Amino acid sequence: MSSVSNEPRLVFTEDNSAEVAAAAFDETTDPRLRDILRSLVRHLHAFAKDVELTQTEWEAGIEFLTHTGQKCDATRQEFILLSDVLGLSMLVDSITNRIPVGATETTVLGPFHMVDSPPRALGDDISLADGGEPCVVTGTVASVDGTPLAGALVDVWQADEKGFYDVQNPDLVPDLNLRGLFNTDANGSFHFKTIVPAHYPIPTDGPVGQLLERTKRHPYRPAHIHFIAGAAGHHPITTHIFVDGSPYLDSDAVFGVKESLVVEFSLVDDPQQAEYYGTSNPFRHAHIDLVLTADPS
């Protein structure tokens, strides 16, 4: 026999819209999902009321999100771009990676980590195409207590001297250009050859580009090299090194710059060092120490 509640029925009104819509998720069995959805509804309704959102504006927003989804494919993630330019990607990264003093600061993954980097030997050249200023990148991976992490994985990818990733120019550059997956040596060290990357605009041929143009924002990111570093028993990190002196360090379109990640790409004019690294002379040199926190589990 069904029971009939004597509680008054909540009827949706403008005043109680958030309360009624959020309550619709009360029976969600996953407590975290329930909390997220109820909070999302409350904030979404508060936003609509704050700006007095019109039907026309709501429809335009739906159309924008629809086009954003339609722009995504196997090598393009327009929703990540949207999250990036709204600062949400960096906020989530900051919340997720509240690191102890001494650990390497993290930053956004970006939209171009779309393929698996090929395993490479220490010292390999990840630049498979002609052009660009020769560069040697050296680095270490260590625990926050200073212990070198031998055999740590270091995933690397970057744009070329014109500001393009391989997936943006598949007909012009070799597959997996400027990507590499390295293992650190017994001392936790790694090195590889590459070229100095250029600053570049994020893709502007989609809805996110239209948003930036409409709001008078530039689409540029300062020059950088991406890293993901991981080792057994440690939290992996996703980070960059930014080229010191690059344009847009103070106005990165995706808010990814942190002062500790700005690195000098110094000019080295030394034939002996060039011979040691197997590169032409002169060349640029950058160094990064990747410091990971131990996983307590």
Rank of each mutant, 00 (worst) to 15 (best):
173 V>E: 06
183 N>K: 11
198 A>Q: 10
148 P>W: 03
129 A>P: 03
206 G>Q: 03
148 P>T: 01
243 V>F: 14
228 I>P: 04
179 R>N: 13
197 P>S: 13
253 A>W: 06
203 P>R: 15
155 D>L: 09
196 V>D: 04
136 V>M: 09
214 R>W: 03
229 A>Q: 04
238 T>G: 12
239 T>Q: 10
166 D>A: 15
248 Y>P: 14
124 D>E: 12
208 V>D: 06
267 L>G: 05
136 V>Y: 07
131 G>R: 13
128 L>V: 01
132 G>L: 07
227 F>H: 06
260 S>W: 02
198 A>W: 10
211 L>G: 09
137 V>R: 03
206 G>V: 01
143 S>I: 07
124 D>R: 05
245 G>L: 13
210 Q>A: 14
251 S>M: 10
122 L>K: 00
133 E>P: 03
253 A>T: 14
170 P>K: 06
215 T>A: 09
244 D>G: 10
249 L>Y: 07
254 V>D: 15
161 E>D: 15
186 A>Q: 09
189 S>C: 10
205 D>A: 08
213 E>C: 00
233 G>T: 13
147 T>K: 00
175 D>C: 04
130 D>I: 00
249 L>F: 05
196 V>W: 06
256 G>L: 12
183 N>L: 14
140 T>M: 01
132 G>A: 05
167 V>R: 03
210 Q>E: 09
229 A>N: 08
243 V>L: 15
147 T>Q: 05
137 V>P: 01
267 L>V: 15
232 A>G: 15
261 L>P: 12
184 T>P: 10
248 Y>C: 10
244 D>W: 02
179 R>Y: 14
124 D>V: 04
133 E>K: 08
171 D>T: 14
224 H>Q: 14
183 N>P: 05
170 P>M: 09
130 D>M: 07
218 H>I: 05
137 V>W: 05
184 T>E: 11
137 V>S: 02
186 A>M: 01
233 G>I: 11
260 S>G: 12
178 L>Q: 14
236 P>S: 14
235 H>S: 10
256 G>R: 04
258 K>Q: 15
214 R>G: 01
125 D>P: 01
200 Y>N: 07
151 G>C: 09
164 F>A: 06
209 G>W: 07
267 L>F: 12
222 P>S: 02
264 E>L: 02
246 S>T: 15
243 V>S: 13
203 P>M: 06
167 V>Y: 04
126 I>C: 02
125 D>L: 04
253 A>D: 05
172 L>K: 12
133 E>L: 06
188 G>C: 01
153 L>C: 04
123 G>H: 00
123 G>P: 11
205 D>C: 03
259 E>V: 06
215 T>E: 11
217 R>V: 04
127 S>T: 13
166 D>G: 15
227 F>I: 05
179 R>H: 15
202 I>F: 06
236 P>D: 11
125 D>Y: 02
228 I>L: 13
182 F>H: 11
